[in-house]
Design a protein around this nucleic acid. Structure first.
Lengths: 248, 248
DNA sequence: GTTCAATAGTGTCTATAGGACACGAAATGA
DNA sequence: TCATTTCGTGTCCTATAGACACTATTGAAC
């Protein structure tokens, strides 16, 4: 939701007053925001990026990065921009999740929020606080703090979509570096799905999909026998099953 | 789409001027609309409901029913209301499809549109023109006229979602009366999926789902041997796989 | 340098789901 | 009564996925 998150355009005002946007004919009108659920994998946990809200409503609560959509940018652009501004994170791929439009989801005014979700590999784990948000951090989706607005619902829905999508589309690769081992990949699947997988069945299936090519190199994964490295053969993200590829 | 569809709140104005909504701080702001893709089955075709636009932009074009979201209604309510006002159709069930937010999708101003889709059985085939729209009609999805805004894209996406959903959720029942024959049901599946299905495999699968109970009656379907009637055991729509149940 | 601990890598059997496939039964209309 | 239309039924085959256990290679500890 995101009301008043953009401090740039949200001067302090009286609490309790319901302030609305207006259409060209002077009628009150819902405002439009985007919120982004950004997942990563670390420590065998699925984590989501949250920021600290500074302004009411929900000042002091954790919230998803997000903010109002500008009139000169698309929804996809707004989501990518807010993620970069508020969390200092650039993503290659975004997918629209759902649009939340309940009347009282923002207690201060009527805001409709288009939720997006995105995935990032562990290398992007150190987000810098952006201009708008002071603190940024990663939280285990199974142990979330109290969240502003309906952000808990958004995260739950995003997690569900991620689970479904993992079953039929190669989205899990977004959570790993380009070169990866089958052990890493299986660990990612196990974290997302929340259950252990059989190693032999997993390898048979993944290798049968013909989306991995061996690099010929080996990698030492802690101790133990070194594992063969593979590279994800993304056909320009054509088979990610929807979503938006950001080209930069 | 849907800009200026609500004639009630859209007086004539100069062409070409880009009129925007404003947020509480005087900044230009996107407006929010809903559009509804309503499908039915008739004449072994999948048909979609379209209305005639009266006002620019795209005056004279066919368009989806839809309009601006009011500040005192949820998105779901707005979609149901517009469908009833513009097309005289009440539906029991709606599902949010996608939110379209490209900059130039409405040439007159910035409008973000939340698309919904809904299904209705053939008994609802005679929609009355509502207050806003003069003419309402059903069109074969394979042979659509030129459409306003990005409505052709919306319909294509809705059709795709309907196909996917048909494979795993019992949505097809929305397109048939309460009491139905397996022949009718198979015909609906064949129209949605666009391919013939094997009768014996179809019956084995559907009956194995345990969602149909025989009423014990027979129905004469034209000529030929009478068919057994079944009733869909909707567990309060709990297994429709998402969407909004409207209770009235 | 031997042993231990940790991870990598490999094949078979079985159960289930789904696709292909053809004919007799019951009704209507000519 | 005959031709036409739709209803209703069972078997085989194949593909997919789950269950299941052992050897190989490395680093660390002793």
């Amino acid at each position: 939701m995101s009301a008043e998150r953009s401090s740039r355009r949200s001067p302090p005002r009286a609490r309790g007053a319901r302030v609305e946007a207006f259409d060209p004919f002077g009628q009150p009108h819902p405002a439009v925001a985007v919120d982004v659920i950004l997942f990563t994998i670390a420590g065998r946990e699925l984590r989501v990026l949250l920021i600290d809200r500074q302004l009411p409503p929900f000042a002091g609560h954790k919230a998803l990065p997000g903010g109002f959509v500008r009139v000169d940018e698309s929804l996809d652009e707004a989501a990518a921009r807010e993620l970069e501004e508020e969390a200092g994170v650039r993503v290659r791929w975004l997918e629209q999740l759902y649009t939340f439009g309940a009347l009282e989801r923002d207690p201060a005014r009527r805001v409709i929020s288009v939720a997006y979700f995105a995935l990032i590999d562990a290398a992007g784990l150190a987000p810098r606080a952006g201009t708008d948000a002071t603190a940024v951090g990663w939280f285990d989706v199974r142990r979330l703090p109290k969240l502003a607005f309906d952000h808990a619902q958004m995260i739950a829905y995003a997690h569900e979509r991620l689970r479904y999508k993992t079953e039929y589309a190669p989205v899990a690769f977004q959570l790993l570096p380009n070169d990866l081992t089958l052990g890493q990949l299986q660990a990612v699947y196990e974290v997302i799905l929340g259950k252990p997988l059989d190693k032999r069945n997993f390898r048979r299936k993944v290798l049968g999909l013909d989306i991995l090519e061996p690099t010929g190199e080996l990698r030492q994964e802690g101790r133990g026998r070194p594992a063969a490295l593979y590279r994800f053969r993304a056909r320009r993200f054509a088979d990610l099953g929807g979503g938006v590829v950001l080209d930069f």
